[in-house]
Amino acid sequence: MSHALVPTKLEELWAYIAENPEAMLCAGGTDLLVKIRSRSVTPDCLICLERLDDLKGVRFEAGEIIIGALTTHRELLHDPIVQRDLSILASAVQNLGSPPIRNMGTLGGNIVTASPAGDTLAPLYILKARLKIRSKESSRSVPIESFILGPGKVDLRAGEILSEIAINQDSRFTVNHFEKVGRRNALACSVVSMAALMNIAEDNTISEIRLAWGSVGPTIMRFGDVERLLEGRQLTVRGIEDAIRKVQQSVSPIADTRASADYRRDVAGRLLLRLLSYASSR
């Protein structure tokens, strides 16, 4: 790498991008620098986004929560809006990496990296996040599931950046659950993760549920049939047994040094059992 550019304003950014079409964008660098070290990418020039203050922070706008793509994980954790209204995202970020990684890494970077193990992704899928993509000339908004195309593959064209993440809180959930299964309690790449948003009726039936799994397929996986099966069911072992099996049949995990495919498949289903702890004991 021969040089790095550090724009502080968007106009500056667009100019740098135009002048250096081969340059790579760097937010916190916690994914990119690892790749540069292992020489899996060899950019000649980096455009660092870290001083673009316009792309940082969390705010309400027209009934939506807008998160700047350059907001770091640490900032998310300390943000009152995230704490109150996006607690599922907060719990995902809480166990992401380690303090130094959370200090540097950004939400936008986690999305654009598009790893099936990206911890914020499963919550963002079930929060129905929409992504704002901008270039010098244009701006478009896409649902996260159509932006992420495959492992490491996103719908981002030359000259575009991810600028904001928008979350419309159409419904409220009493259960905001995220669980990451990693091989240790910090600095762990997820082996399986599951995010769940759920409402439970007084009689312990599931009235509404949204589920998403990480690390068990090429992208985050959601199964509409599992959600439909669960809605109206009792929150008991018997009530969710067949959903567990269905999840186990539907996921398509791989094996690596962290876990076998069978383990991932098995546990992906079993993680639904954790939801039983939200059943009221009345």
């Binding site: 240790r184 309690n185 910090a186 690596d256 040094t257 962290r258």
Partner: peptide, 24 residues
């Protein structure tokens, strides 16, 4: 677990060779 498959190391760095952290 320092893994070598057919003599080739597959746990090449700390992302796959896991030591306990203070949280563990």
């Amino acid at each position: 677990d320092f893994v070598a498959v057919e003599g080739h190391v597959t746990t090449k760095d700390f992302s796959t060779y896991l030591t306990p952290t203070s949280m563990d």
